[in-house]
Design a protein around this nucleic acid. Structure first.
Lengths: 157, 157
DNA sequence: TGGTATAACATGGGAATTTATGGGAATCAA
DNA sequence: TTGATTCCCATAAATTCCCATGTTATACCA
């Protein structure tokens, strides 16, 4: 049994005619190991689908429940949005999930989906959007951290 | 169970036709002892692959896990960059891992890989690049040394 | 102390397994 | 029934497992 789990890596899978997508094998292993379930919802900040383990949302719910924070009204709203939107997605015997039309539309996904790990969460992007988004993020990070320089070598193709 | 662990030494191993490389035996011992896993990602600052234990990233993920950060846009970018690029690499019964094409390309590695210990992390270099890099670092350190160590300390023990 | 036996390691190659993915049949909902 | 969802089987490619071999390091002994 593993002691930690993290959604990582970036993998692109096909969305078939029926709307099915293979959940990356690593992600499936996490679900198995934790005994939890995958939950997806529309990202509040980007045109992508966001997913995590049900455990995490449960934790979020607990925190909101016990919060004495007067200023958490805004967070409350956000939480409502998430829970109103979230839905469990279990995979079949071949490891595929079937994303709802609503989610696919929000992310502009048609025939291929890019899974991007974010640690306790992950995102699912339309291929072109993700290419742009990654470039944006890299530029942002290098701008804010002068000590780090973009690497120019290697990057063959 | 050991109290401390450090990735050390510099060892060069072959990358075979399938893309497999032996992880140095010392590194494997660390993985066994800690019960963690190796995680690799493209270095942000050099044309090399960087690796560490999954524990290290897990700690990072945990720090971002509370409800405040659940919706944090600032950390969003960072997690995408880090976890989106990282990937777990477990070694087979003979101690080899299979590095992804993306990583190998970034480091310009084709048929041999140099593992360089860095304490809690390690790096994997293309042989020629590492020779240059080491020379560069040594020169750099030598140049800066006078400002680091007082030159005139007659009272030094 | 030199030399040899033994164990650990790196590495090659083939077999077995896992993955991603397509398509058909069975099941379900209204 | 129609459309959709779920389940199951098939396949090709990629990945992992396993055994074999040469090499290096370590232990041991005379």
């Amino acid at each position: 049994m593993r002691k930690t789990f993290l959604f990582m890596d970036t993998v692109s899978n096909k969305v078939d005619a029926k709307g099915r997508v293979s959940l990356p094998a690593d992600y499936r292993a996490i679900v198995k190991d934790t005994g939890s379930e995958i939950v997806c919802y529309r990202s509040l900040s980007s045109p992508c689908i966001e997913g995590c383990l049900e455990d995490l949302l449960d934790k979020l719910a607990s925190e909101m429940e016990n919060s004495l924070d007067f200023f958490s009204a805004a967070q409350d709203d956000l939480t409502n949005l998430i829970f109103g939107d979230a839905k469990r997605y279990s995979f079949d015997s071949t490891g595929r999930i079937m994303l709802s039309e609503k989610l696919l539309a929000h992310a502009g996904i048609t025939d291929s989906a890019v899974f991007v790990g974010k640690g306790r969460k992950f995102q699912i992007w339309n291929t072109e959007n993700w290419v742009q988004e990654e470039a944006r993020i890299r530029a942002e990070v290098f701008k804010n951290r002068p000590s780090i320089r973009p690497v120019n070598s290697g990057e063959a193709k």
